[in-house]
Amino acid sequence: MRLPFTASFRALARPGSAFAAPPPALGPAVRDMALVWIPLALLNAAWTAWRALQAYDALRRGAIAPGILGWLGADPADFQELVSALPASPAYGQVWPWLLLAVPLGVLGTWLHHAVWDHAGLWLLGGLKERRGFRTSLLAEAEALRIAALGTLLGLLGFVPVLGWVLALPLMLLDAYLWLFRGFALAARHGCEPWRGIAATGVHVLLLGCCVLGLVSLMLFMVRMAA
């Protein structure tokens, strides 16, 4: 019996040879990526939204450990006043239909985003000598993200009570590996050394990761505080 995602597991285990086959056309590569990733991302987003709404409501009720407020240096009275002024959360039934629109857009947006920044990183590291163009980066990202979508599936384990805490570190390490994994696809399709492709994803983190980290961590922080 052939298990689902067998090919993805094999590619992740042997990234050096995962992209040795001739490249597919861009259209089919993007379609395959979307067909694998969007359902998993929808499942993940639906669960995340449900948990986030619960956390937000708890935050509005002021359900936060005093130790966290002390660590933040926030005054409990000021904090209570601040969170009680927040608007009520929408019902889950109002939220999930929007996910059907937002998640596919987010998947395609993430693919484009990774392609732009990894392409820039690869250029900065001299990995575009073959002059195969941005289209090649789009193709490489689509191929790699189809395989890396497996991480979205495994990431669902992080929501399981207790097990989620146990798996937090391994899942973070998996995330880091899946990030770097795109570098193998970039290197193979652009015909450069693997280290340049992998380093390009690192440059991506340096160039942009820090920029958005503040805003994203702010939003995550708001959710986590009340979880």
């Binding site: 933040l72 340096l206 820090c210 920029c211 503040g214 702010l218 939003m219 922080f221 708001m222 505080m225």
Partner: peptide
Amino acid sequence: LEPVSGLLPGCAFKRLTGVACAT
């Protein structure tokens, strides 16, 4: 998001090294 931005823990790099990061 500005009203709650003051709750951010700040730059981890700066906290560790005492020096500002590029961003």
